[in-house]
Write a protein that binds this DNA or RNA. Sequence first.
DNA 1: TAATTTGCCTAAGCCCCTTAGGCAAACGTA
DNA 2: TACGTTTGCCTAAGGGGCTTAGGCAAATTA
Lengths: 191, 191
Amino acid sequence: MARAGLAAERVVRAGAELADEIGFEQVTPSELARKLGIRTASLYSHVKNAHDLKTRIALLALEELADQAAAAIAGRAGRDALGAFANAYRDYAFHHPGRFAAARFRLDTATAAASAGPRHSRMTRALLRGYDLPELQETHAVRLLGSVFNGYVELEMAGSFSHSAPSSEESWTEILDALDSLLRNWPASSS
Amino acid sequence: MARAGLAAERVVRAGAELADEIGFEQVTPSELARKLGIRTASLYSHVKNAHDLKTRIALLALEELADQAAAAIAGRAGRDALGAFANAYRDYAFHHPGRFAAARFRLDTATAAASAGPRHSRMTRALLRGYDLPELQETHAVRLLGSVFNGYVELEMAGSFSHSAPSSEESWTEILDALDSLLRNWPASSS
DNA sequence: TAATTTGCCTAAGCCCCTTAGGCAAACGTA
DNA sequence: TACGTTTGCCTAAGGGGCTTAGGCAAATTA
């Protein structure tokens, strides 16, 4: 019999492409159907509804992003790994803005737990093992890095850094240097 | 004559409340009309369209946020000011999640330039004057702080930190300590 | 008081999301 | 090869949201 699932995956993949073309927010059943050259109603054999479509695109993006980040840090450590890891995020956002936005789509708890999300934290933890952080501080550092990567890329893509000198490129490098320095000299907890 | 503008402002204010109640994304002309007890079409005397409505709510939120941040740093310096400033953002997001999301709404260049956005950067710069950063590094630090505040609050509100120990509260304090430490020991540029 | 403006209304068009039910082609199996 | 099943798409239709056009009564100003 014709295998179900394959077609659904093609649809989701087309949705991801569409997201990069017109923005994740603008990805809707009708728009995707237009891209695929079929009637909107026909999409509902492959996807439950608009929310389900966005969720699947988000899951795809999270996987891709995790794969690229994993490849980036393989065989590296310290500032080298930090830069490669951070650039994996930033480059992915640059090349796939719609997918990157999708990766930030709010998933419900169960879906998030089954997604590649946890892989991202584990990789960040692995990255930090190259630094000598007090164990209790590691989670704080994970959260800081996640905040900076997400926050910086979001602001950059919103154009916040493009209307003033110095270039975003330069700030990015300096910020990575600063984070590297911070991780080497993490302050003792005051509490 | 009956003054125009007042009514529009009431409408926008109601829109901001609605955003806090149901989420900024869900704020639409029809939903707002329901809240106000009028017909959807009647809103169009006060607001140009759905996008205009969201833009106005965003501008309102940016102003409010800037006001609160300004009040928070008044008379403070160093780690004290850093904490007060950062908490102003985080508290605002906590008390007004919809408005906070609105403040991150993508404005077109002209609107953004006329918004309270630039005030935010100026305040961040003022904050940094309490630290002895090389002048060329100041912009990088501004961008770092913006990234961390935006990124952390977004991840926190998405629930990313609520399913694992330690508490987000604790991470927040430690991260502020870490940033304070970093600003006091900003690494010399390698380039 | 008279003219004007405001704020809301109904009507209507267009598009989107979603469900229901049908049909032809493709596929696996005998 | 021939049959039955599954798949992938279709049309039809309901419900709702966004938006424009045109009208009317109350409030405001002069």
